[in-house]
Nucleic acid binder design. Sequence first.
DNA 1: TAGATTGTTAATCGATTAACAATC
DNA 2: TAGATTGTTAATCGATTAACAATC
Lengths: 211, 211
Amino acid sequence: MEQKNIPDVVIRRLPVYLRVLENLPEDFHENVISSFELGERSGVTPAQVRKDLSMAGAFGKQGLGYDIHVLQDKLKKILNLDKEIRVAIIGVGSLGHAIARYITQRYSAERDYHLRLVALFDTDPGVLGEVIGGIEVHHIDSFREKARELKFRMVVIAVPAEAAQAVMNECAVAGIEAVLNFAPVHLKAPEGIRIHNTDLSIDLMHLAYYL
Amino acid sequence: MEQKNIPDVVIRRLPVYLRVLENLPEDFHENVISSFELGERSGVTPAQVRKDLSMAGAFGKQGLGYDIHVLQDKLKKILNLDKEIRVAIIGVGSLGHAIARYITQRYSAERDYHLRLVALFDTDPGVLGEVIGGIEVHHIDSFREKARELKFRMVVIAVPAEAAQAVMNECAVAGIEAVLNFAPVHLKAPEGIRIHNTDLSIDLMHLAYYL
DNA sequence: TAGATTGTTAATCGATTAACAATC
DNA sequence: TAGATTGTTAATCGATTAACAATC
């Protein structure tokens, strides 16, 4: 199958596969990996792996498996990681801080693709002007201007719940295309923006059920 | 329907509903909420809300909706939030720090239920002994002992990928029941432990697809 | 070649949506 | 009462799993 309208559930698993390929142990000397092995390391059944990869337009060789390097490239391409992805973070509290660190550390230098942190925003004079991973914290008032200037299309929201909707609106006017929201409110996507809502406390409560 | 074997997809939405109920705006003067209103605020269809709540054994009144207070209690009960939930964090880098802050700030004091942070662990001498939200950072070597002493059954893992599996094993022997893993590896659950894997970079790559 | 593993189709399973009688 | 909204059943939709012919 070729990659037309890949369902979102599948898309969500592709980065997991990619992560596995990138972190194969030293002693993994094959240059090929089977759907069994890849599934094992991704927490997915082999059948699922093959189905997903075929939808993604990847192809392996019968009797052998998938060429690791080829598969990696294919996945990066689909996920747009063959281009540099420029990201801004709004809200530089402890969570925003941690995310900034995470992005700069995990995606720079040695990787052959980048998720690049290009801007940080807040309103608190206490953090304004601070520099994290080489990036300065700007006032949110300059958001629209900076968005144009630095050409980022993806934003991480890490502000308090009360401020999140206003920030979202600001993103909308600035032409942002994708938002990862950590504020504990369900933000709904204005026209043409893709939002993923994520909330640590919801994960904790979810787990609590199983105690 | 009564709450036997509620599917995990449903359980995952219950905390979302609970969060909505807790954060209803000041000017929301009703003491009752309809599946339409609740769905709207949760990003879920009204039919879904009713189905979920009926599986959870909650009940509303035809023509009116759900009593907010009653529903809140019901959801808390199901999610075990009627008891105090004691949580430990392993790995006090910037992410561990942020999570610690988040838990102590969001779940203490004014809420009538608690997710209580009771212990922090690391190996880095640089953070050992540091106190966050009133909790001291202990060496991981004392984990088993502290687990017994402080009776926490839920753990958040925020260590580097390489260390995660070892930490997981340590949790298993210490009798931990639920783990929220932020390390960028898929950890699989040893016998009797519930694990949720979560990874910021996977969310970012997932979103990148839609750019 | 023989053995292994893919890609894909068909079967199953589960989740979401629609619809509506019951009833507040 | 009339209007609104639940709880639940049945219909639909979609995702996962099984199975196996194709083929490296």
